[in-house]
């Protein structure tokens, strides 16, 4: 299968039509990420425990098109939550998907909600 950037498009909270029940909260490391499979998509989900927030974005790094972002380190840059790609440390805002240390394409972000100890990711299809 060829992974294609076009597979991933930002989903805004108001456009969510499906809340996909991904996995129990405990499966995600504190202040770290894990990868969720949804149909033919790979979604990186981050449990930003220090902020008390969850984020989701495409697992595909737009730099060299590798499925690795979920294994990246998360952190914050002047208040902006971010993930640094494990391969070459390009970092992306977890809020907006914007590339913070260069001008690669924005990555797609997805809404996340937690209910009854489960992580749900919002999709529009």
């Amino acid at each position: 299968m060829i992974s294609n950037l076009n597979t991933y498009e930002v989903v805004e909270p108001e456009n969510v039509s499906i809340w996909f029940k991904a996995a129990p909260v405990v499966k995600f490391p504190k202040n770290g990420g894990a990868c969720v499979k949804y149909k033919d998509k790979q979604i990186a989900v981050f449990n930003f425990t220090r902020e008390g927030t969850w984020y989701a974005c495409q697992n595909l790094c737009p730099h060299k098109m590798e499925m690795v972002l979920s294994r990246g380190m998360i952190g914050e840059d002047q208040g902006e939550p971010k993930v640094a790609c494990p391969l070459h440390k390009n970092s992306f805002s977890l809020k907006t998907g914007k590339h913070l240390n260069g001008d690669l394409d924005r990555i797609a972000t997805y809404p996340v909600k937690i209910e009854d100890g489960f992580v749900y990711i919002g999709f529009s299809e």
Partner: peptide
């Protein structure tokens, strides 16, 4: 790490200070 950040650091850390 979290205790160190709480005691003497600020914010939520990054890929430089964590390792």
């Amino acid at each position: 790490y979290d205790s160190l950040l709480d005691e003497v650091g600020k914010g939520h850390g990054c890929e430089v200070c964590k390792p």
